[in-house]
């Protein structure tokens, strides 16, 4: 697998830290993390990653605008949330990494997002 880069949008540092480490264990090249909405929007707009995992809320604010940018740029992403799927509005068809999650869930989602049809 060529070196991949992942955007992780998550406002709980305990979770982003362990997810980053798990991603590293899975052989991902770089993990870009954003914990606040302005940083997340900027990271999504800047690109430079192969797929994204997006928490539905950052400090109480929805991240649908981040999802819109990612969809526009055709970058595969999954929501990362404990909310029910009907909270995803027009993004209900996006894959979801549920909270809480197991390491296997994370691996499954990354495999799905980075599958060859959309891969580099």
């Amino acid at each position: 697998m060529p070196e991949t880069s992942i955007l992780l949008i998550e406002d709980d540092p305990a979770i982003s830290m362990i997810v980053e480490e798990m991603m590293m264990d899975l052989g991902m090249g770089t993990v870009i993390t954003a914990g606040r909405l302005p940083a997340a929007l900027e990271a999504a707009a800047n690109g430079g990653f192969d797929c994204a995992i997006v928490d539905l809320k950052l400090h109480g604010q929805d991240t649908f605008e981040v999802a819109r940018i990612l969809r526009q740029r055709n970058i595969p992403f999954a929501f990362f949330t404990g909310y029910a799927a009907d909270s995803l509005r027009e993004y209900a068809s996006q894959p979801v990494l549920p909270k809480p999650f197991a390491e296997a869930d994370l691996k499954g989602i990354l495999d799905h997002l980075l599958r060859p049809v959309n891969g580099a």
Binding site: D12, A14, I15, M17, V19, G82, P98, K99, P100, F101
Partner: peptide, 9 residues
């Protein structure tokens, strides 16, 4: 669920 995810992490 968020709290459980934090505890797990």
């Amino acid at each position: 669920k968020n709290a459980l995810a934090t505890v797990y992490a």
